[in-house]
Each structure stands twice: as C-alpha cells, then as structure tokens.
Design a protein around this nucleic acid. Structure first.
Lengths: 165, 165
DNA sequence: GTGAATGCAAAAAGTTTGCAGGAAC
DNA sequence: GTTCCTGCAAACTTTTTGCATTCAC
C-alpha cells in the first residue's frame, strides 16, 4: 500500500492533476465516496457520506464537483425517473466499469447489473463500428437499461411507486 | 383509412379504453403529437405542438398525461442531462419501437439510432434470459445509450455545451 | 347525472449561480 | 502571492399539487 493510501491508492489524483485541476479536500472526499460505493448514488447521498469524511462541505460543491467529473468522463450521471440524478464512477482502479441497470417499472427499484460475457463485448464493438460508419459518431462508452419487473413485484408484493423512465 | 383516421388509425384509443381511462381531447392530442414525432420531445415541446391541435390545454395536463402513459408503458421517459425529461412513444402502429440513442459528450446533441440487426436481437434475448435466472427480473424492454463524439465535434467545430448524461 | 380529468395558480424539489472568503499551488 | 475553489444563500427551472370547474361516459 504505497504512501498509506488504502483501497487501491487514490488513482484519481493523477487524473485531476493531469487535467489541470486542483486536488482539494472536498474533491478527494467525493471521489473517495464514489470509489467506495458499489452503485449509483444521488447528490444528497453523496453529500451525507462526504460529510463523515469532510464535514465542512456544502451541497453546491458536491454538484459542482460532480459536474466537473462528469465532463471529464470520470463519472456517469443517470436519471431513473425519481426526480434526482444518480452518479457512478466511470471506472475503478482496475479499469472500466459497466453501467447496466435493471429498472423495475412497478416499484422503481434499480439493480446494478454486472458484465455479461464476451459475446456482448464483441457484438457491441461491432455495433459501435457500424455507428461510426452510419452516423460518423465515435462511441466511447455505452450503457444499457433493462425495464421490467423485479422479483418482489413479480411475486405480487407490489409496493408500486414507480415513476417511469 | 378506416373511419377517417389518418396515419394508422389512432390505435391508442383501445389501449386507453381497455385500461379504463377516459379518452379526452387532451390525451388524444398528446398521443397524436407523440405518434407523429420522430424522436424524443420535452414536455414543453409537446405542449407547444399540442397547442396547435387543442389550444385549451395547459402544461400540467401534459405532465399528468405523460406520467399516466409512462406508467401504462405506452411512453418512455428519458433524461439526457439537460435538465428536462424527454418522452417517446414506446411503439407505433406497426409495433415496438427501438430506443437507442447516441449522446455527444461534447455538445450534448442526441441522435436517435434505429435498429441494428438480428444479431442484436438474439444476443439481447439471451442476455435477458440470463437476467431472469440471475436476478429473477423479468425484462420487458431495453434501451441502449451510446456516449461519444458526434460528427461535428469530431471535426473540431465543438459548440461544447454538454451537461452530462 | 356522476366521477374522472382538466386548468389555473401556487408550491415543491432539485439544481445552479453570485460573491466574498479560504485553500492549493 | 496568485488563482482557483468553496461555502452560503438566493435564484432558477422544471415538475407536482390543490381545488373548483368541465367533460366523458
């Protein structure tokens, strides 16, 4: 564990510096929270978690940093239709992360869905080549959303409070 | 053209009636606009277009109807990160529509992207079976979003005003 | 005629912005 | 020391809601 950094060594330091941005306590705390979280967090959830690490921060810094990171491509922003945006780190220390979600159309629950297999990669690579030809659009990443019914709702428990998307 | 209905015959009448909802002028106008539009429209864009057909309507009816239709599964709601939701008919008279988009991370432009080919269908069907097994989640539809650079931004024109996903 | 749906206006919620003080370099 | 970043509070925008009226059935 080089220089006392846990969990993979704060790989984002270099990314910020290289892009010419300052490495502030606030930004470090936000990235640390995102890096530790398994899935999609809302701005307020991030705010609350950041508060434990760095209590001085305000919500607007969270928003400003998240926008910065989104523009840098370090973070992806999602909207699952519940009126607040969700954020997810684009990658971990080990490399690209996947961004596929199952969204229950009945209760609104969102499940993070890991990788599939090599076939998926191959087909998507093929599709992305086709997009480049047809639209002259260079794809850098993709995300798939599956709509349907989660296990609970399929079994008739039906907490029903979904709002769509 | 049965009973004087143009463009496919307002197939949605039955869908509303069957679900026990009243067929109002406002709802009909909204569905008509969505049916005629090629891609994703914001609530306000729909409002403006509806105004031409049915000038009495207000924005809140648009929102209420769009939520109803989204819950019914007739409409999909999207968010491309510009602060307003977009709506797209889930299907046309001819059947299921695809919901794949190219989102430019530089200028924010969104391009509707049609079907690919049979391979895609086959693979997604396979993936959806896997999701049923692994998560006990019954997939009913899917949407793919590709992020990248559009033709203009690739060529350095760069109007840059994107806000994320 | 009855209950659901609408229209208007007001409220709510999330997100953005201005500006002065503070922190990173 | 200089410049960028933050924190607070106020502003903004989109979306939601209450209630009386209107319309579909």
């Amino acid at each position: 564990m080089p220089r006392g950094f846990g969990r993979g060594g704060r790989w984002w330091h270099g990314r910020l510096r290289d892009a010419g941005y300052r490495l502030t306590l606030s930004r470090d705390a936000i990235l640390s929270v995102l890096n530790g979280a398994s899935g999609h967090l809302s701005a307020e959830e991030i705010y609350l978690k950041v508060h434990n690490i760095y209590p001085a921060g305000g919500l607007s810094s969270i928003y400003r940093t998240l926008e910065l990171l989104t523009q840098m491509g370090l973070v992806f922003k999602f909207d699952f239709g519940d009126g607040r945006a969700r954020y997810e780190l684009a990658q971990g220390p080990e490399g690209e992360r996947h961004h596929h979600h199952l969204v229950c159309t009945n209760c609104g629950r969102v499940i993070d869905c890991g990788n599939f297999d090599q076939d998926e990669e191959d087909l998507l690579a093929k599709i992305e080549k086709g997009i480049l030809k047809k639209f002259s659009f260079r794809v850098t990443s993709h995300m798939i959303r599956f709509l349907g019914l989660c296990d609970k709702c399929r079994n008739g428990i039906s907490h029903g409070q979904g709002r769509g998307t």
